[in-house]
Amino acid sequence: MIPAPQISVPTAAGTPAAVEITKLSKWYGALQVLFEVDLHVDKGERLVICGPSGSGKSTLIRTVNALEGFQRGEIRVGGVKLTREPAVVDAVRRRVGMVFQQFNLFPHLTVLENCALPLRLVRKLTAAEARDRAMHYLTKVRIPEQADKFPAQLSGGQQQRVAIARAVAMQPEVMLFDEPTSALDPEMVKEVLDVMVGLAEEGMTMVVVTHEMGFARQVADRVIFMDQGRVVEQAPPEAFFTRPQSDRTRAFLNQVLPH
């Protein structure tokens, strides 16, 4: 018998952090892509991670819900120490929602089914309950009228909003976003960011990999800059944008910020 996973482990401070990453190192074969990364996300905190392409941002957040494995260090989600045990991974994935750059909606299911199916399979809701909850969240992302369409019939922005609704409908404790607007046409970026801002205002804990510095300024509590598998700098947005400490951060900001 596999022992039941510890669902909640209070830390010394009281309530556990939403995500606690300690000295995380990861290799792809011989290539090391994360170097002893430490990251602490409090409940209700909004984190933006930025950094040049290939710096390990995706890899880092994908280790949190075990889409990627890791070799050294420790990850705790809501106090649960992430291992490779099925029950533990299940428990962690229930607490973590994820939105991908490429939306990854299920093309064979309607928009409504995309949101309702996981609710039935994972949250064990009845068909009617799942439907109601799915509609509730589709309304929140402002596309209830598209519920019976298939993903291929929607614009990129609409698809990404469905993907957000699908993840949030599972009522996770943390939401991870991996460049949610990078695959969108410019005119659709705003509708997706608006939904994310709304989510932040409701107090959702969010870790967002993005180059949308306006979004970072508006909602982030902290901005993390990563380069070559390391967290180089982290600061509140105001300080991060006006007084970057390292040369690499300055060089990066010069490229992504409008002049």
């Binding site: 819900n65 299940d90 994935r93 991908f100 994972v122 599972m170």
Partner: peptide, 13 residues
């Protein structure tokens, strides 16, 4: 691969 990942991230067995 994204289909597998999305399904797993949602907690599907």
């Amino acid at each position: 691969k994204g289909q597998w990942e999305a399904a797993r991230a949602l907690g599907l067995r």
